[in-house]
Design a protein around this nucleic acid. Structure first.
Lengths: 178, 178
DNA sequence: GGTCGCTATTCTATCGTGGAATAGATTACA
DNA sequence: TGTAATCTATTCCACGATAGAATAGCGACC
């Protein structure tokens, strides 16, 4: 997959608890949950739910709510659970800064939510970023001065910042000292 | 403008020399020029040229080339020159990491190309990023632990990296020591 | 002279997106 | 009791970005 979509993150939320669009949306809007990770519009979320249902990763059923319009509750299928595991422990995650910010943090969020081990996720991401760093470093040495060179240096600085930051992600949420 | 487009960068290139789509494209593909800053498809570039022409910022005229198909050469109008100046010395540039990588480096590229002063551009960008850093720092102190907090810390680390990196941009291309 | 490759531009099909529209249900309050 | 406002929940639609194919002029090579 090349495009950045919340598909698997949705699977993760539904793995924790069967739910419906409007409720899931709240989680993506709460800045203490996924609000700082994803910027998701209403239609996009419902589109993803439809896609996942079409792929047989989740199934929905209409449910009448007590004091609200009827809603469609979705839950994971076994194919969905499998897909989630594969994504969560992807051995070669992307080292793109954007991907780290969004996809890695989503993995972390989901793993914590499901009480699954986070260390392998952090380790895999760290390794990927280190490799990327080495690659770019070699590239820089072959690069002519100019904005292309500056762009590479910025990229290297960003990767270095990620590598320094990522160690803090191994800790559980409560262990954060300064 | 909210969306990230190469419009003004194009104006900058045309300010240096009247040119046509195919040639401009080469500059955006050369990784020693703008290749590491913009990822631009053919159709996007031509679409931008049409838009700029529609806005009266550039004018095109068909030219027969010696050993090639006819081309449309574009040059800046006075409105275009004005727009370029405004953009180049924008007093409050965006502090978004992506914008810095793309828009700021484009400004720098264009200013160098036209032998215009780069210091004010760097200074304005630096100030914007410092302000953003302070804002996010305050936000972090109000934030609950979790991925939202980690996202903020990552953002802060990225901004710090930008602030450290940006000083090197004040130098002319040839002054780069280690 | 056919076809390969370079120059130069346009066309098209698709897809993501934001935001409006729809719609059911409860609450407010006069 | 009527009606306006508000919250819940989902769908619809128009727009623009985008990639990549298609078109097309022109020389070169064998």
């Amino acid at each position: 997959m090349n495009q950045l979509t919340p598909d698997e993150t949705l699977l993760g939320l539904l793995a924790a608890q069967a739910s419906h669009g409007y409720q899931l949306l709240a989680c993506f809007h709460d800045s203490d949950e996924l609000g700082r990770v994803w910027k998701l519009s209403t239609s996009q979320l419902y589109a993803v739910l439809k896609r996942l249902a079409g792929q047989g990763l989740i199934t929905g059923s209409e449910v009448e709510a007590a004091r609200a319009p009827a809603r469609v509750e979705y839950e994971l299928t076994s194919a969905g659970r499998e897909q989630l595991q594969t994504w969560l422990y992807e051995p070669s995650p992307s080292a793109s800064i954007r991907r780290v910010r969004v996809e890695f943090l989503s993995r972390l969020y989901v793993a914590r939510l499901l009480n699954l081990p986070t260390i392998p996720i952090v380790q895999a991401q760290k390794t990927a970023c280190q490799q990327e760093y080495e690659t770019r470093l070699a590239e820089r040495d072959r690069s002519a001065p100019g904005v292309g060179f500056l762009a590479l240096e910025l990229h290297l600085a960003q990767l270095a910042a990620v590598l320094h930051w990522i160690d803090r992600c191994e800790m559980s949420p409560k262990e954060h000292g300064t």
